Amino acid sequence: MHRYHRADVLRILHISAKQLIGWEKAGLLASSEMYSFFDLLQVKKVRDLRAQKVRPTAIRESLQAMQKQVAGLENPLLEASAITVRGRVAFRHEGMSMDPIGGQYMMEFAPVGQLVSANVRRMYSAQTASEFFARGVALEEDPNSQDEAIAAYMKVLEIEPNHAAAHINLGTVYYNRGEFDDAEMHYRKAVEIDSRYALAYFDLGNVLDETGRLDEAVRAYRTAIILAPTYADAHYNLALAFEKLKMPRKALKHWRTYTKLDANGPWAIHARKQIARTLENDRLKVVYRSQ
C-alpha cells in the first residue's frame, strides 16, 4: 500500500503544519510521519469538518459517541458518512442522519434538527458512498488513474447527490487537468449544497483566479475568510489576487494575516518579502512627495 510522508499530506490536502498539529493536539488525529491513503482520507474529513466551523471538541465527542453506539465501528470518519447539523457531527446511513451523542436518527424529510428515536445499534460499518469516496481519494493523486477517480466520485454522487466533498474533489481533479469549466461547475455545486463550506469558496476562488476573473475570485476568497477567518491559504491567495489587481495596500493586510497564521510555512518567506516591498514602496512615495 502506498504511504504518504507528512509533507505530502500538507501538500495534497492544502493544509498547514500548524493546522495538522492542532488537530493532533485536539485528539482528532494520531500524530505520525507516514500515512496510508485511509489516514489521508481521515485527515481530509477532519479538514472539511473544520472548514465548516465544527469545533474540535464537538468532532471528538461525536466520534467517541459513535464508537460506543455502534458495535464494531472502529473509525466513524472512514466507515460512515459524516455531515454537520447545527455545529455538531452527524452520520448518514440508509437515507437517515443520526446524532450519535443523543443516539437518535434525524429523518431526512423532517426539518433540520428534528430527532426521531431509534436503536442505532442496527447500523453496520462501511457505506457504499464512503467506500467509493475513499477509492477516489486513493486514485486521484496518480495522473494515470484520474479517470478512475472521476468515476469513483461520480458514483458517490449517484448514491448521495448532495455530497459536497465529492464535488470538491471532482473539481480539484478537473482543475489539475486544466479543465476549468468542469472544475468551476463542481465547485459551484458544492457551494450550492453547503453555503458555509469555506473550502468550496476557496477552491472556487482558485479557478476564477486561474481564468482571469479576479474580481469574482476576490469575492470568493473573502467569503471563505468570513466563514473561516483563520484560513491561512485563503488570506495568501486573496493577497495574490489583490497584487494582480494592482492593489498592494489591500494585499498587505492579508500578507500580514498569513504570516501570523502560518509563520513557518513554505510561503511565509514570500509573504514577508511582499510586506517589506509594499512598505518600502510606500516609504519611497512619501519621500518623493516631500521633495
Rank of each mutant, 00 (worst) to 15 (best):
Q64Y: 10
M106G: 00
L240S: 13
D182Q: 11
N144T: 05
P76T: 11
L20Y: 13
A17I: 01
L49R: 12
W23R: 06
N144K: 14
A220H: 04
G265H: 11
R121K: 07
G72R: 11
G87L: 08
G27Y: 05
T223C: 02
M1Q: 07
N162H: 02
A268K: 11
S145Y: 05
D181I: 10
K53P: 02
Q114I: 06
Q52G: 01
R92L: 07
E79Q: 11
V286H: 08
A82E: 06
A268H: 06
A126L: 05
L10E: 15
R219A: 15
A7G: 01
I150F: 00
Q104A: 12
A239G: 14
F133A: 06
P111D: 10
S32F: 10
Q291S: 13
D8K: 05
I193L: 03
D8S: 14
A232M: 13
R177M: 10
K25W: 00
H167R: 04
L29Q: 06
K53R: 14
H93S: 12
A228Y: 14
P111V: 06
A234C: 14
L170N: 08
R196E: 12
S32L: 13
N75M: 03
A164F: 02
K68W: 10
S16W: 11
A232E: 10
G265N: 08
K253L: 00
I15P: 08
K189N: 03
Q42N: 04
A232H: 13
F109R: 09
A228C: 03
K246C: 04
